[in-house]
Design a protein around this nucleic acid. Sequence first.
RNA 1: GGGCCUAUAGCUCAGCUGGUUCAGAGCACCUCGCUUACACCGAGGGGGUCGGAGGUUCGAAUCCUUCUGGGCCCACCA
Length: 854
Amino acid sequence: MDTHYRPLDIENKWYPYWMNKGYFRSVPDDREPFTIVMPPPNVTGVLHMGHMLNNTVQDILIRKARLDGKNACWVPGTDHASIATEAKVVQLLREKGIKKRDISREEFLKYAFEWKDKYGGIILDQLKRLGASADWERTRFTMEDSLSEAVIAAFVDLFEKGKLYRALRMTNWDPQALTVLSNEEVIYSEEKDTLYYLKYPVADDVSQSISIATVRPETILGDAAIAVHPEDERYAHLIGKTVLVPLINRPIPVIADTYVDREFGTGALKITPAHDPNDYEIGQRHQLETIDILTPDGRLNETAQLLVGEDRFNARKLILPMLEAGGYLVKTEEYLHKVGRSERTNAIVEPRLTLQWFLRMKDFAQKALDAVRQDEIKFHPPQFVNMYQNWLDTDHVRDWCISRQLWWGQRIPAWYYQPNGTDNPLIFVAKTATEALEKARIQTGIPNLQIEDLYQDEDVVDTWFSSWLWPISVFDGFKNQEELAYYYPTQVLVTGWDIIFFWVARMAMAGYEWGPALLPGHKKGYMPFKDVYFTGMVRDKMRRKMSKSLGNSPDTLALLDKYGADGVRFGMLSSAAAGNDIVFDAPFDVKTNKILDESQLCDQGLRFCNKMWNALRLVKQWEIVPNPDTADAAEINQLAIQWMEERLAQLQEDQESSISQFRLSEALTDLYRFIWDDFCSWYLELVKPVYGRPIDRPTYDRTVDFFSDLMSMLHPFMPFVTEEIWHLLRSRPEREDCMVTPLIKHKKVNPVLSEDMAILNKIVAAIRELRAEKQIALKESLNVWWASSTKADSLLTQTGALPLVMKMANLAALKPTEEEPAGCITLMADTEKLFVAFEAEINIEEEREKVLKE
RNA sequence: GGGCCUAUAGCUCAGCUGGUUCAGAGCACCUCGCUUACACCGAGGGGGUCGGAGGUUCGAAUCCUUCUGGGCCCACCA
């Protein structure tokens, strides 16, 4: 056997082995279910650190449940990620010389699905490398037929319940993706900009003017008014007057509105209703015209009159010299403000008036809020409840804009009928065109209405409108409730806190919305999951969130190759208490994306594997005989075994408690320390025969039992190394594997034993310390006395204790004494006093003082 | 503007219900040791006024108040 543990071959061996035995598969039976639905990664995604952390946690919980005899079901899948994927496909088509606008929707979707089949879902294979024991036969995709049907069913149902409406609203427009975004998809961050002060001349007296401040001078072309505060004396004389928009001399009124902050800028505000949400509202109040000067992709249109066709940012640059030349530019200032960018494309979001579908959120929010408040859904760590409440607070919650101007997604099942000359179309929402037509015929009273007379909504629904159904739709719950009844609610959701609003809250909403109808009288409740484990964000050394766009994520596959899946799992987890962001310190070269140095945490995990591997080597090389080699050995072994049984019982208890509270890193750290310190450094050293001597069969067997049990306990965390060692420890029957063999519960028998051993350990440590201090070689055996006292006497005279200390500290003799023998150093070990024979000259005084001090 | 979290060893963090697992772990550092499973190791060691200041208490890293750093979420301030 190699002195070093080599993870790669071993990991490559076990994963297919488990798969072939069908251990990941779950079908409903009479066992208690333990269900996790995997947060579906983007179909375009590649494995990054966040996924590894996330899925490691899920795998631990699933493997633990499986070992506990539950029917563990982990459903994997991918998300179609409409905006991101569509952008990617558009890009690829462009490279082929195909423009999206030149092809039909059907052609586009054909390309998109082709691309998805070819490249999509790589990430799921990468998860296998990590050891993820998901039921791959259940792999779902949010845009496969069955799941799309669920989306359509949900849409139709909500429409019929009156919870959906279509309205012209100020929305967040992504000029790059050419679609509207929900509020949650806009990320605001502080950016440096310039504040321009511009002068608007008064129409009937050009010598007078009013100045405003704006960061978007190009939008003056869409101005509809200048607003001042009604009580602002500086501008009272101008209210009601007409001023001229610079450069184009369009007359606009000066109006009074309390929205205006007198302290800001000049105290006068330009009103551009088409391009600012606040301005839009003011415009509505004052019946101002909405002058849209931008094209969907963010260029100035004909209405702008000037700079037509220029991109909005370019227009800003170009308009400045014009304003300056005209004498309209008063001054400029550096200005720090929040800028909203598209979550997916990073383009600066443009407020835009568009016709969209919205979902009324108030009732949904209330139910989702109650579920958490009433502890039907528990958050780990609990402080995320605050964040959740804050967002779902029914006073602020805003309706969810669910339509997107894309093709990659479920097309909105709404058909419109709008005969010439009518203002608003009639809307027919139905699962199919045929049903819509049926409805239309009845409602319009035109029996021979044809499908060609209707037109379907061009938009698709938001990706999250399919994701929120995930815990139901992966079991085809909208069609058939057989599996749903068994697996729902899922046990725990493991996800990053960054999608608490996007996803967690909305799944809760969906659960309570459809649960009662789909599973009437379901005893287990309608929450989609009972617990939510929020993982932290994985950050780099500069504490930045690891992301593809920053390029600061290490090459995860290289990490797996280098440290093994077990090592990486150890590394990810050992510093990842729930909800705490973890700084993953794997230095890497941004340019080559290569790891430069070792990641300490993963390296520690690999070294841990190596430690266990070598413990295995030690055990395997022992020669086994029926009976103990010596009387001392028999005594030591007996004591060691009893102690180990006691410690294991305690460990097991602690593990159950930690894991049930989702303290996974604590559970792993405890195991690490137990295996390294208690098992290897102490227990194995105790029972280890002296060189060349054999071990007795009973001790050997118990040792293998202990080792196996530790492997079982560690298995959920580090599945590969534990399976390997578990098998090498002893030959196993055919259907027995570490992964599926439950651990027998150890019982605590003699709790005092742990304390006694701790004191013996301290005595040994004190003698070792003395050796280190006095440079006494370990080979040199020492004579030691202990000061007689009831405690030390009872401790050291119990079976095995004396030879144990002598073996571990390498003593020639260990005896009680009433008074201090001559030529000795006095030691304190815990409360026990020891005298160690020491022949070299020593300064008795000095030593005495030291002892006194202690 | 509203709200949340956090500050503990050089670094990354545990420390749960105030008190015998209370000042801890890993890494880093120092000393000694290639010893017979493992130098990817072993035996030891140094290192912290628990962010500051008040308070509650017999007792505070832990509870309260406040201040100061750091992070985050929400909200329409040009």
